[in-house]
Amino acid sequence: MVIKIVVKKILNNNSVISEDINCKEVIVMGKGIGFSKKNGDLIDETKIQKIFVLEDDKKNNQLINLLEDIPEEYFELSQMIIQRASQKLGKDLADSIYLSLTDHLYMSIARYREGLHLKNKLLFEIENFYPDEFRLGLEALNIIESLFSVKMAEDEAAFIAMHIVVSENGDDMEDFYKSTKLVQSILNIVKFFFKVNFNVESFYYQRFLRHLRFFSLRILSGEDQKKLSLKNDLLPLIKDRYVDAYQCTLKIKDFVNNSFNYILDDEEILYLTIHISQVISDIEEEKGKNKF
């Protein structure tokens, strides 16, 4: 985006209001971008990190109030965490995380200083389903302790990881909660059907988990329901070869249908059956090794 590099209003040392090439107001963010500036001054383009176009009056006011009310060090903290996450994950994160994470960190640190520690009900799921993002959350806790002298529990690392995951996928927090709970429900069906505990470090488990993440998003969006049901000629062969895995998949099919009114087609049943058979075979193989 091309910017008319002129300050219209200073929000804080790290953010100012300017205009884009179409004379639409934008918020320009960058470390020290508003320091010692006044209205009408030029913006140092080399300091620009993010640009937010102001289009919705309600959201605009919320954003401006956030930038004016929250101390600058929280934006700097947020930018450090986001930059580290983007580098480690090898992808850009949605712009919304600059606001949502900053607001969350500001409120969370304030709560901790008052002795209020919130438990994260999805701590186990986030740690196991999103290990890379959770590790970034743990790294963020070290940064927070170093800069703010506040030591936080792993629950907070999971909250930070949630913001990163949501920003990665372009979802909102409600979709994240629903997707994570759905994946856990499907894993529980498999776990209780075969009476096993998963090896979360297993290659087959991690591959199954990746499949379930995308599967859950399709269910919640209902996207495949708009298409004709796909028939797969391999399914009869697979269900005869992997009888137990197929029966387990049928239980998942019933659960998804009853809970989300989503009907699995043959192709999805096929893939679920194969994934489940591989995960269970891997567990049984490990059990066999441990007998000797």
Rank of each mutant, 00 (worst) to 15 (best):
F176R: 04
I144P: 00
Q79E: 14
Q225R: 10
N257W: 08
L67A: 05
A110Y: 11
R111V: 02
R218N: 13
G40N: 12
R241C: 09
K251A: 06
L212E: 00
F159Q: 01
R135V: 08
V243S: 12
E68C: 09
N65F: 14
V2N: 15
R207H: 12
L217I: 03
L237D: 12
Y262I: 01
L234F: 11
L270T: 04
H275D: 11
A245F: 02
I269L: 14
L235A: 01
V16L: 09
K226R: 15
S216W: 00
D95Y: 07
V150R: 03
R111S: 05
L105F: 01
P71I: 10
Q278M: 14
E25R: 13
V26G: 03
D20L: 03
E73S: 08
E168S: 10
N142K: 12
N13C: 05
T46G: 06
I276M: 02
G170Y: 03
Q87K: 15
I43M: 10
R241H: 10
S78V: 08
V2W: 10
L93I: 01
I48Y: 08
I64K: 07
I3K: 01
T249Q: 03
E76A: 07
E125R: 02
S277V: 03
I33Q: 01
N61P: 04
I186A: 02
D132F: 07
A245T: 01
L11V: 08
S277F: 03
V279Q: 03
D172R: 08
R218D: 12
L89G: 04
K119A: 13
D171C: 05
E145F: 08
I280M: 01
S100I: 02
K151G: 07
K9N: 13
I17R: 05
Y271G: 02
D244Q: 13
S149E: 13
S281K: 14
K4Y: 12
Q62L: 15
N13W: 04
K47Q: 05
K59D: 14
H275M: 09
D282W: 06
D95C: 05
K195Q: 14
D244T: 04
T46W: 06
R84C: 06
N169S: 12
M173I: 09
M173A: 09
E72V: 10
G170F: 04
L99S: 14
I269N: 01
S96H: 09
R241N: 11
A157L: 03
E127A: 11
R210E: 15
H117L: 15
T180I: 06
L89P: 02
V200N: 10
V166A: 09
